[in-house]
Lab assay of single mutants.
Amino acid sequence: TTVKLGDIKVTFDNPEKAKKYAQKLAKIYQLTVHVHGDTIHVK
Results as ranks from 00 to 15, higher is better:
residue 27 K to I: 10
residue 33 V to W: 09
residue 15 P to H: 12
residue 19 K to L: 15
residue 28 I to W: 11
residue 17 K to F: 09
residue 25 L to A: 02
residue 9 K to R: 12
residue 27 K to S: 11
residue 23 Q to L: 12
residue 34 H to F: 13
residue 3 V to A: 01
residue 35 V to G: 02
residue 26 A to I: 04
residue 15 P to W: 14
residue 19 K to D: 04
residue 21 Y to Q: 01
residue 8 I to Y: 15
residue 21 Y to R: 01
residue 22 A to E: 00
residue 10 V to N: 02
residue 34 H to Y: 13
residue 35 V to T: 07
residue 13 D to C: 12
residue 19 K to Q: 10
residue 22 A to N: 00
residue 15 P to G: 06
residue 16 E to R: 08
residue 10 V to L: 12
residue 8 I to A: 05
residue 2 T to G: 03
residue 32 T to P: 02
residue 6 G to W: 12
residue 32 T to I: 10
residue 31 L to G: 11
residue 29 Y to E: 03
residue 25 L to G: 00
residue 41 H to D: 07
residue 37 G to M: 05
residue 43 K to G: 15
residue 21 Y to G: 00
residue 35 V to M: 09
residue 31 L to A: 09
residue 24 K to V: 11
residue 32 T to S: 10
residue 33 V to L: 12
residue 25 L to P: 00
residue 39 T to A: 05
residue 14 N to G: 04
residue 23 Q to W: 10
residue 14 N to F: 05
residue 6 G to Q: 05
residue 12 F to N: 00
residue 2 T to F: 08
residue 16 E to D: 10
residue 39 T to Q: 06
residue 30 Q to D: 11
residue 41 H to L: 11
residue 10 V to Y: 11
residue 32 T to F: 08
residue 18 A to K: 00
residue 6 G to E: 04
residue 21 Y to E: 02
residue 14 N to L: 05
residue 15 P to F: 15
residue 5 L to H: 08
residue 19 K to M: 15
residue 36 H to F: 12
residue 17 K to N: 10
residue 34 H to T: 11
residue 30 Q to I: 04
residue 15 P to D: 05
residue 30 Q to N: 15
residue 17 K to E: 13
residue 22 A to H: 01
residue 12 F to L: 02
residue 20 K to L: 11
residue 11 T to D: 05
residue 6 G to F: 11
residue 24 K to E: 11
residue 13 D to Y: 09
residue 12 F to G: 00
residue 37 G to W: 05
residue 28 I to C: 14
residue 5 L to M: 13
residue 40 I to Y: 07
residue 9 K to L: 14
residue 23 Q to A: 11
residue 12 F to Q: 00
residue 9 K to P: 02
residue 38 D to F: 07
residue 19 K to I: 15
residue 31 L to V: 05
residue 13 D to F: 10
residue 4 K to F: 14
residue 25 L to E: 00
residue 13 D to V: 09
residue 1 T to H: 07
residue 27 K to F: 12
residue 18 A to T: 01
residue 16 E to T: 08
residue 9 K to D: 06
residue 25 L to M: 07
residue 40 I to N: 01
residue 13 D to L: 11
residue 26 A to R: 05
residue 36 H to D: 14
residue 27 K to C: 14
residue 19 K to C: 15
residue 41 H to G: 02
residue 28 I to S: 05
residue 25 L to V: 06
residue 27 K to L: 13
residue 13 D to K: 12
residue 2 T to D: 04
residue 11 T to L: 12
residue 17 K to S: 11
residue 19 K to W: 15
residue 39 T to S: 06
residue 4 K to L: 14
residue 10 V to C: 14
residue 7 D to I: 14
residue 6 G to N: 07
residue 9 K to C: 12
residue 2 T to Q: 06
residue 24 K to Q: 10
residue 16 E to P: 01
residue 8 I to E: 03
residue 37 G to N: 06
residue 11 T to A: 07
residue 13 D to E: 10
residue 19 K to E: 08
residue 34 H to P: 00
residue 35 V to E: 08
residue 9 K to V: 14
residue 18 A to H: 00
residue 10 V to F: 13
residue 22 A to V: 06
residue 7 D to S: 15
residue 43 K to Y: 14
residue 43 K to H: 12
residue 21 Y to T: 02
residue 14 N to C: 08
residue 42 V to P: 01
residue 27 K to H: 11
residue 42 V to D: 01
residue 13 D to I: 09
residue 9 K to G: 06
residue 1 T to S: 05
residue 16 E to Y: 09
residue 37 G to T: 03
residue 7 D to R: 15
residue 42 V to S: 01
residue 21 Y to L: 06
residue 23 Q to T: 08
residue 7 D to V: 14
residue 6 G to Y: 09
residue 36 H to A: 11
residue 16 E to W: 09
residue 26 A to P: 01
residue 37 G to K: 05
residue 14 N to D: 14
residue 25 L to H: 01
residue 41 H to M: 09
residue 29 Y to H: 07
residue 3 V to S: 02
residue 18 A to N: 00
residue 34 H to Q: 11
residue 2 T to R: 02
residue 31 L to S: 05
residue 29 Y to V: 03
residue 38 D to Y: 06
residue 30 Q to G: 15
residue 4 K to H: 12
residue 2 T to P: 03
residue 24 K to N: 09
residue 17 K to T: 12
residue 32 T to H: 08
residue 5 L to D: 02
residue 37 G to S: 04
residue 36 H to R: 09
residue 5 L to W: 15
residue 2 T to L: 06
residue 8 I to G: 03
residue 12 F to S: 00
residue 29 Y to A: 03
residue 38 D to N: 14
residue 12 F to M: 02
residue 18 A to C: 06
residue 37 G to Q: 05
residue 28 I to D: 07
residue 15 P to A: 11
residue 12 F to K: 01
residue 41 H to A: 05
residue 30 Q to M: 09
residue 10 V to E: 02
residue 40 I to G: 01
residue 34 H to S: 10
residue 37 G to E: 06
residue 16 E to A: 10
residue 17 K to P: 04
residue 13 D to A: 11
residue 20 K to D: 08
residue 3 V to L: 04
residue 11 T to V: 14
residue 20 K to G: 06
residue 9 K to S: 14
residue 7 D to M: 14
residue 14 N to Y: 04
residue 5 L to E: 02
residue 43 K to W: 13
residue 35 V to R: 05
residue 36 H to I: 15
residue 16 E to Q: 09
residue 42 V to K: 01
residue 27 K to A: 13
residue 36 H to Q: 13
residue 4 K to T: 10
residue 22 A to T: 01
residue 28 I to Q: 11
residue 3 V to C: 09
residue 1 T to A: 06
residue 7 D to G: 13
residue 11 T to R: 11
residue 15 P to N: 07
residue 1 T to D: 02
residue 7 D to K: 15
residue 20 K to T: 07
residue 6 G to K: 06
residue 41 H to Q: 06
residue 38 D to M: 09
residue 20 K to A: 12
residue 39 T to H: 07
residue 2 T to V: 12
residue 16 E to G: 07
residue 33 V to P: 01
residue 39 T to V: 13
residue 1 T to I: 12
residue 12 F to D: 00
residue 12 F to R: 00
residue 13 D to P: 08
residue 33 V to H: 01
residue 1 T to P: 04
residue 18 A to M: 02
residue 29 Y to F: 12
residue 16 E to M: 10
residue 26 A to S: 06
residue 28 I to R: 13
residue 23 Q to V: 08
residue 28 I to K: 15
residue 36 H to T: 10
residue 6 G to A: 05
residue 7 D to N: 15
residue 17 K to Q: 12
residue 9 K to N: 09
residue 11 T to P: 04
residue 1 T to V: 12
residue 3 V to Q: 02
residue 3 V to D: 03
residue 18 A to P: 00
residue 20 K to Y: 08
residue 32 T to Y: 08
residue 15 P to M: 11
residue 29 Y to K: 03
residue 8 I to N: 06
residue 34 H to M: 10
residue 33 V to C: 11
residue 34 H to A: 09
residue 10 V to S: 03
residue 32 T to D: 06
